[in-house]
């Protein structure tokens, strides 16, 4: 009896092992690149909005590469680049990106697309921030001591939010300022449950608003631009980096096909595009100094 029992168990697990081993070798493509795997370190917003789900299958089909998406906060995504643990970065924290470029860890930083950040909050808007400029909106929240939920995860959105507080000359205080330490979706959910205010990128907001009672209160301020750049990790500094793959991915994002897909993305589902394609432009063209 015992032998049967163990044999049965072993057979189940071994079958699993064999199938698992078989998974590695699938997915033949027209032109087989030498190193097929590309590690793309990016922000949660490109994944949670569904943009990568639309772009990657097309790129993989065309190029034969397999993109491994590690979607984390922009702070961690940049850190992975600085340590040579990723091949290509798609991130949205221009100031922090420039620092990484300066260290020589990444090269070929190119503008891909932008959208904007918006402040969302409860419909009854207890702090009265609706349609205010960003500075006075933040001042009203601080004075009313209404709940503000911060990402608190060193992401691009978090960096942007901290910069906005700083620019308004305000120091958020414990008590009404809550640090979630979570991705955008989770942070929006917390803000919704607590009926607080938060800063979100428009793409994630549009994807999630069906579950929300919050509403957009502040938008359209030039300081709320959310700009995404692609950077290749420097293969001269990190020899294990998949240089050809990183270049191919960057090239695809900026190709007319890639740019058109970005510009169209979301129109069918949300009635408006989630991102504006900016291939070939610079930050100056967007009005950023």
């Amino acid at each position: 009896m015992k032998q049967k029992l163990w044999a049965g168990l072993a057979a189940i697990c071994l079958a699993g092992a064999l199938l698992l081993a078989g998974c590695g070798g699938q997915g033949a493509a027209k032109t087989e690149p030498a190193n097929k795997d590309i590690i793309l370190s990016t922000t949660t917003s490109t994944r949670d909005s569904g943009l990568l789900d639309a772009l990657l299958p097309v790129f993989e089909q065309e190029s034969g590469y397999k993109v491994k998406v590690i979607a984390v906060g922009t702070g961690q995504a940049l850190k992975m680049g600085e340590q040579g643990e990723a091949d290509v970065l798609l991130v949205h924290a221009p100031e922090a990106e420039k620092k990484v470029l300066a260290t020589g860890a990444a090269v070929n930083r190119k503008l891909v697309m932008h959208n904007d950040f918006v402040f969302v909050g409860p419909k009854n808007d207890p702090s009265g921030i609706a349609k205010q400029p960003v500075d006075s909106a933040l001042r009203n929240i601080a004075q009313a001591k209404e709940t503000f939920v911060s990402r608190g995860d060193d992401s691009g959105t978090h960096k942007m939010e901290l910069a906005l507080w700083k620019k308004a000359g305000l120091q958020p205080e414990e008590g009404w300022y809550r640090s979630a330490g979570a991705g955008m979706g989770q942070t929006l959910k917390i803000a919704d449950e607590r009926q607080g205010y938060t800063l979100t990128d428009r793409a994630t907001w549009l994807a999630l608003q069906k579950n929300m009672t919050l509403t957009i209160l502040v938008e359209g301020d030039p300081s709320l631009l959310n700009i995404y750049h692609v950077m290749e990790v420097n293969s001269e500094k990190f020899t294990k980096v998949n240089k050809a793959g990183a270049q191919a991915f960057s090239k695809f994002l900026l190709s007319s096909k890639g740019q058109q897909m970005i510009a169209e993305f979301g129109k069918d589902k949300y009635g408006q595009a989630l991102f504006f394609a900016d291939g070939g432009k610079t930050e100056a063209d967007l009005g950023v100094k």
């Binding site: 168990l9 071994l14 699993g16 092992a17 199938l19 698992l20």
Partner: peptide
Amino acid sequence: WLTLQVSGLAALISV
């Protein structure tokens, strides 16, 4: 299916 494969194999090795 992937869940079953990964955790089944992990359980087997653990045993």
